[in-house]
Write a protein that binds this DNA or RNA. Structure first.
Length: 562
RNA sequence: GCGGCCGUGGUCUAGUGGUAUGACGUAAGCUUCCCAAGCUUAUUGUCCGGGUCCGAUUCCCGGCGGCCGCACCA
């Protein structure tokens, strides 16, 4: 068995992961977290919250997964998540229609079935594999489709990312954070993608957990107020220019222009620190800049955190993207709601501008029910758009001309306190399940004991270990088990997860704890009866030392930083 | 989605047209037991559906799942 298979077998045996719906044959792309897995996952999430909510002071929000269609039309996901696929009639190989067409040098102006079929037919594109004819294109959308309500219902999708929730609530969040940038909102929840063929276990699921932060910046100032604290953090960077890994501090990366702005650099450093804290091996972690054609439809720069996994190679576990103003602009346009922020001037400014005052009586007679829209458009028209004979406007997609008799244009003086702009967004987006698997993979260690048997230890960082302490009576005799049970109760009261075990030999019990990554084990032995001490055994060094029972809870709390 | 290989207790595995082997694990007990010791006892299985057959875990078909390759992975 390879290490990947070993980890999955162990994960199932020890209660970390179960294939979902197993008694009905299972469904690919879904996993259940067992008691150990759910605990480990939650502890990873807790550390993430410690960095983003406690450390950064961001606000955690929770939004529905079921999302009406217009949100994803505006965000671009309906279009970008739909691929047209064609299959060869002869050899059945499937290709993306747009890729085939673009390879011939043609440009696609409309992403629909008719255009794709027509272009493939006209360009006489044949199967690159066998030269066969293609069948008609069919759409493949990666979002789960559903309906809201019965009868007159509304099209909806399960969200493929949690980010949209932060954008939709931008105005409320902006007010919540007292209208000062930068601020961040975060969300930890499930996302859904109807993958065509999910494989590789937790790495590509159809329902998965993500932890996303959207930090809103003034585009003129993508500086991070606490960058000084991060400038000496080292990370392995792979820029898209050289494509060579280099280890350097984020301060250097920024001054050399490898990372474009302070905000991106800050979150690369923060991610590196978070991952080290939860036990990801820095030697198997790198940050790779996306190639220009690799970037998502919304991103203008992106660095992926990639972890090296046994068998799978380098796998993306986090994306840190500069989404610029893409999302807020799109939603502003689609919803008609203002999602801008205000950049206040140090002192109010007096400006002179030409204001257009519509004459409503004439306007009403000419434009009837459109008059209201015309009035709005006139009032916000730019001075340079005013022609000698009138103003050309676009109302609901129609070009109209407003003669100069229908309004008055006059210079006015106004006090302006600032200017409005659409904030830019830096988005660190963490794939929790992938991080979970990385933590398992990097902690998993196999050695041979003296008898040459394979021995598994999960070297989890104590902060994320599901069980912190195993408690064993050496034997169930002379009240040793009673004492052990009392210690268990005491540690639980002190907030330390522990597990009592009196089954099998002492070595077997250590082995069980080692396999689920428990960092410490306590053994109550016959000396305990004499001097009230127990042995505390360390998972990684296997060293034992005697500790007074009363000293146990404070000692573990200190080790765990509680 | 397509093609290839595969599917036996919780895990790994033997084997078979006549209800299935072993190991590990797990549980109870014995053993002053500190790194999967030993002994006794218990425990659970042929992925699902259909077909052929007196009889299918085995042969055939379909589904589901896994692995590999192609495609996909904003």
């Amino acid at each position: 068995m390879d290490k990947y298979a070993e980890i999955l077998a162990m994960a199932k045996r020890r209660g970390f992961l179960y294939p979902s719906f197993e008694i009905y044959g299972g469904v690919a792309g879904f996993y259940d977290y067992g008691p150990m897995g759910a605990a480990l996952k939650r502890k990873i999430e807790d550390q993430w919250r410690k960095f983003y909510v406690l450390g950064e002071g961001f606000g955690e929000i929770m939004c529905p997964a079921v999302t009406p269609e217009e949100v994803f039309i505006a965000s671009g996901h309906v279009k970008e998540f739909t691929d047209f696929v064609v299959e060869c009639k002869k050899c059945q190989t499937a290709f993306r229609a747009d890729h085939l067409i673009e390879e011939t040098g043609l440009k696609i102006h409309q992403h629909n079935k008719e255009t794709m079929d027509k272009m493939i037919a006209e360009a006489k594109i044949k199967c690159p594999q066998c030269g066969g004819e293609f069948a008609e294109a069919h759409p493949v959308n990666l979002m789960f489709n559903t309906k809201i309500g019965v009868g007159k219902n509304k099209n909806a999708y399960l969200r493929p990312e949690t980010a949209q929730g932060m954008f939709l609530n931008f105005s409320s969040l902006y007010r919540h954070f007292r209208e000062r940038l930068p601020f961040g909102a975060v969300q930890l929840g499930r996302g859904y993608r109807n993958e065509i063929s999910p494989r590789q276990g937790l790495i590509r699921q159809r329902e998965f957990w993500m932890a996303e932060a959207e930090i809103f910046f003034d585009p003129e100032n993508k500086k991070h107020p606490r960058f000084a604290q991060m400038k000496d953090v080292k990370a392995t960077l792979v820029p898209n220019t050289t494509r060579e890994p280099v280890e350097m501090t984020l301060g250097d990366a920024l001054s050399k222009g490898i990372v474009k702005n302070e905000a991106l650099a800050y979150y690369i450093a923060l991610t590196s620190k978070l991952f080290t804290t939860i036990g990801i091996d820095p030697a198997r972690l790198r940050f790779r800049q996306h190639e220009h054609d690799e970037m998502a439809h919304y991103a203008n720069d992106c660095w992926d955190a990639e972890a090296f996994l046994d068998k799978l190679g380098w796998v993306e576990i986090t994306g840190i993207a500069d989404r610029s103003a893409y999302d807020l602009s799109s939603h502003m346009k689609a919803s008609g709601v203002d999602l801008s922020a205000m950049r206040k001037y140090d002192a109010p400014r007096t400006v002179e501008r030409i204001a257009v005052k519509p004459k409503m009586k004439e306007l009403g007679q000419k434009f009837k029910k459109d008059a209201g829209d015309v009035k709005k458009a006139l009032e916000s028209v730019d001075a340079c758009a005013i022609g000698p004979e009138g103003i050309e406007l676009e109302i609901n997609g129609n070009k109209i001309f407003v003669e100069k008799e229908l309004y008055e244009a006059a210079k006015v003086q106004e006090t302006v306190y600032g200017e409005r702009f659409i904030p830019h967004v830096i988005e660190p987006s963490y794939g929790i399940d992938r991080i979970f698997y990385t933590v398992m993979d990097h902690a998993f260690s196999r050695t041979k004991n003296e008898e040459g048997e394979e021995y598994t230890t999960l070297r989890l960082a104590p902060v994320v270990a599901p069980i912190k302490v195993g408690i064993f009576p050496l034997m169930c005799k002379d009240g040793l088990d009673k004492i052990a049970e009392e210690i268990e109760a005491k540690l639980r009261t002190a907030g330390i997860e522990c597990q009592y075990d009196d089954s099998g030999s002492i070595g077997r019990r250590y082995a069980r704890m080692d396999e689920i990554g428990t960092p410490w084990c306590i053994t109550v032995d016959f000396d305990t009866l004499k001097d009230n001490t127990v042995t505390v055994r360390d998972r990684d060094t296997k060293e034992q030392k005697r500790v007074k029972i009363e000293a146990l809870a404070p000692m573990f709390r200190e080790k765990l930083g509680l």
